[in-house]
Design a protein around this nucleic acid. Structure first.
Lengths: 149, 149
DNA sequence: TATTGTTATACTCTATAACTATA
DNA sequence: TATAGTTATAGAGTATAACAATA
């Protein structure tokens, strides 16, 4: 007989599997998840300054310099001049970077559909509501703890 | 109006929050999550050889050497002799290591209870069933992809 | 003065390969 | 011969601090 897992335990298990799947799926392209997050952000938001990327990814500007160095060397992004502010570097997807982002978007949609299909139709609405409640509470907890720091 | 999030998107959001919360909660103790995982494993399973830890955490033995070096220096574990096999190092929690593990277990239970309480009682059973279905499917996907490698 | 990005430096996690001690 | 752990080496991700170029 299975031990009764709480939703929290199930989320932890899911998080570990998601992490593992992301790393595995990136192996083929030779990208790290940190670098893929950069590509994904630019894919969603368009060309970004390194400062913007640092804010979005919540890392230091110095860290972004290193990530963009790697992505530029592998040919997935290019550093472009900002039209009016010569201090700013606009990080832009190359064709090969866009290919990876497009593939990631497709993978995301495919997994999303597969997982949704795995849930009994009668449970889907309650699952979505329950997950929303859990995620909202978790977010509140995290933000409260970060504020009191 | 909110965009309709799939369970997959909700899981990704939850995973990001869990990661963030773990890092934050470890800040106070000065531990990294890699080192906390070592303590947690020993707390669950009792003293372990470094080889066992390498298998459990799915990292190389060399990596374990480094993690145990750090944990020994901070006084959270000690390297003990194996009673019959002189090649083996038994990594054991010190009193201060046990204190951290106990605190982590309490935190885990507290968050678990808070998140469960956040879910409308009528949705709990369906949430647990739905999450189980999603996690099972995700696990099957990950294992299938890792096997075909 | 303030902002953007880089150089300098350092630490942690991770890996592979070669080696030592022990079984 | 095989196993457990360490030394040697390397690379990625992360951080702080000081600096140059530009606004």
């Amino acid at each position: 007989m299975d031990v009764a897992l709480t939703p929290f335990d199930q989320l932890l298990r899911a998080a570990a599997l998601l992490e593992r799947d992301m790393v595995r799926s990136l192996e083929a392209s030779g990208l790290s998840s940190a670098r893929m997050h950069v590509l994904w952000a630019i894919g969603q938001l368009g060309p970004q300054s390194q400062q913007q990327l640092a804010t979005i990814l919540e890392v230091t500007p110095r860290n972004i310099t290193g990530l963009i160095d790697g992505l530029a060397e592998s040919g997935h992004v290019s550093r472009e001049a900002h039209p009016t502010d010569r201090r700013v570097v606009l990080v832009t997807l190359t064709a090969s970077g866009q290919v990876l982002v497009d593939a990631a978007v497709r993978d995301h949609a495919a997994i999303s559909a597969e997982l949704t299909a795995a849930v009994p139709a009668a449970d889907r609405a309650a699952l979505t509501r329950g997950l929303a409640a859990v995620v909202d509470r978790l977010e509140a907890l995290v933000l409260a703890e970060e504020r009191g720091r």
